[in-house]
């Protein structure tokens, strides 16, 4: 396992412990579906490609019929069962994927550039605003990323590629590799 604790580069990279995640698929146009997931996450229903997260709780728009619910890991198992029961009479699916995904928080002055080095995504500030969620690839692995603010991004991927992602981020944020593209 590559250790990020003492990583010192263009941005800090921190693995987030204890992030619970539920994958929810269903009909976004059904009021009962929207109410159920909003009540669980305690935030408004996200617009297309938006991440609405406050203090580790929230909703991520993953596709036209898929949401990710963010919540503390200790609550995930029970929340999954409760939500599945609430949506029992709808065409919907709820899964606890807390063990299947890993989150990294990257923070620093060149956070946009670090992402742009790894993903085929236009990271220009006029195009990619904080709160926008983008599912893409970092290097060779499927990844989702959103900006919390101009200095902070949250990245998550399958836990099976956790080591690859940690090394990839560390290389992209090497202290001698600044391009300063977005500072121009």
């Amino acid at each position: 396992m590559s250790d990020l604790k003492n990583f010192d580069g263009l941005v800090s990279i921190r693995e987030i412990e204890g992030q619970g995640m539920l994958v929810v698929r269903g009909d976004f146009s059904a009021p009962a579906f929207r109410e159920a997931v909003c009540a669980l996450a305690g935030v408004d229903f996200p617009e297309q490609r938006q991440a609405v997260v406050r203090d580790g709780r929230g909703l991520l728009w993953m596709s036209p019929d898929e949401l990710m619910v963010m919540l503390p890991r200790a609550e995930a198992s029970r929340a999954r069962a409760d939500l599945a029961a609430k949506l029992a009479d709808q065409h919907a699916l709820v899964g606890d994927v807390s063990d299947a995904r890993v989150h990294f928080q990257i923070e620093g002055r060149v956070v946009r550039e670090t992402i742009a080095k790894l993903a085929p995504v236009d990271m220009h500030p006029d195009v990619f605003a904080p709160g926008t969620l983008r599912r893409t690839r970092f290097g060779q692995v499927a990844t989702a990323v959103w900006l919390l603010d101009e200095r902070t991004a949250r990245v998550f991927c399958f836990r099976s590629v956790r080591d690859y992602m940690a090394k990839l981020l560390a290389v992209a944020a090497d202290e001698k590799s600044e391009v300063a593209y977005f500072q121009k």
Binding site: Q48, R49, S63, P64, P120, R134, R135, T136, R137
Partner: peptide, 12 residues
Amino acid sequence: PYCGVAAEETEL
């Protein structure tokens, strides 16, 4: 047409 992302070839 589903998520509105302008995706380049390697994402597809």
